[in-house]
Design a protein around this nucleic acid. Structure first.
Lengths: 233, 233
DNA sequence: AACAAAGGTGAACGCCGTTTACCCTGCACA
DNA sequence: TGTGCAGGGTAAACGGCGTTCACCTTTGTT
């Protein structure tokens, strides 16, 4: 049945426990509280023992970042739902789920989405892109066609991104017809992400210029605007 | 001439030096490196001496946050320029200056614009709003009229924000005619900030779904789009 | 049965924020 | 003109941190 030796099982279990407690510390007391000694204390072992599992605290945080991405991806896929429903309903559902998740998990959001470049990222950047494209891919495949932007606008040069996007999708086994990957589509994807991220981050960090009640309404307005811009009601 | 006693001059000087070194540490080695002991070392004094100036490291960071806001505001006001030029040129100049500043000072941007709610903010939130409104106010006063949004959209309820905005402006001595503060104006302000912040933060944190060359082009497209939406070419 | 590796320990090093007790020194006031 | 006191500094100490090292026990393999 299980090909694992006793030691390997123990190791896997401990590893799991480490991540769980690290996650709990992050959620409840913030990034600074994710401390090797605190984790060890909760596990009933000593801090140096953790070095059998991770090379440093930094690496543990990277791992944590990865775990969060995985969970977030699962959570969001939940809201994609079956293939039946209306296209925009699904997109809206995923966006709203992202906002809800971010507001409910500010510390995790901060770690994953607002850490300065050199720190946690590096490997996690790919992980994040993977999650993002995993969510977005099916939509781009299903999207009937992208409304051309109004004449008079010169699109920025996004040919490089088209290719990156195409190979990323095929790497992940997501089939997206090439005609759905025109420059308009890429451009629109970026605009969507900018606004979604912008609103959510501002709300999480309390950086709107004044206290917003009805932030939900503002968020929904933004979604409808975006939908309008690709030609859907 | 100077009403200050010798001791007061010394104190002011030291205070200044503390801030400078703290700032340098932040810029060069990140938030975690802003350490009481490190600052003291550079000043040639001992760490406990700093408690004559700040109650805690947290408070020092808050103060630092304030200083950054002040400098940023000055920097941005530089780009507002004299009253002569074209309206949109000025708005664009300020937005581009903000992006340049953020990319050139990622650690400072992170501290001020991407710290989870409870931490640095609290008092700094007002400070930030002050800076934001100080920049935005003159534009809203000068703006001819706001193009109504397309029919079929229901604006979110922003009446509370209208009032907050109005009193904030008058508190700061900025004269904005009440007809420039309609719900459309407030709504448009928020959309602008969401997109500006969204793009800049994503770029600073490297959280676009793939590596963007030509991010400038994307940024400029966004600006032109926004200008288009209030009815300017 | 012998042995090597894995996983744990305790002690130590050098950081850190913060508190405490103490010491000068410049300033105000008698 | 002295006197006292507050302001700005010190050293020492506490507890917590990441990390390293030497060591010891358990486990799996040969």
């Amino acid at each position: 049945m299980t090909e694992l030796t006793r030691r390997e099982r123990m190791r896997a279990e401990t590893e799991q426990e480490i991540r769980q407690h690290a996650r709990a510390l992050l959620v409840e007391h913030g990034r600074e509280a994710v401390t090797l000694r605190a984790i060890a204390r909760e596990l009933g072992i000593t801090a140096p023992a953790l070095y059998r599992y991770y090379d440093s605290r930094e690496e543990l945080l990277r791992q944590l970042c990865d775990d969060i991405c995985t969970d977030l991806a699962a959570e969001l896929h939940t809201h994609v739902g079956p293939a039946g429903e209306e296209f925009m309903d699904k997109v809206f559902a995923v966006c709203r789920a992202f906002r809800r998740w971010a507001l409910a998990h500010p510390e995790e959001f901060t770690l994953v989405f607002a850490s300065p470049a050199g720190q946690v990222r590096d490997g996690a950047q790919d992980r994040f892109a993977e999650v993002f494209l995993g969510i977005v891919g099916p939509f781009m495949a299903a999207q009937p066609t992208t409304a051309p932007t109004e004449p008079g606008f010169t699109l920025p040069d996004l040919s490089a991104q088209q290719e990156v996007l195409a190979t990323a999708f095929s790497d992940q086994g997501i089939e997206v017809p090439p005609e759905a990957l025109g420059p308009h589509a890429v451009y629109f994807l970026l605009r969507w992400w900018v606004r979604l991220y912008g609103h959510v981050a501002l709300e999480v960090f309390g950086r709107f210029p004044f206290d917003l009640k009805h932030a939900d309404q503002l968020f929904d307005s933004m979604l409808h605007e975006l939908a309008h811009e690709i030609g859907l009601p």
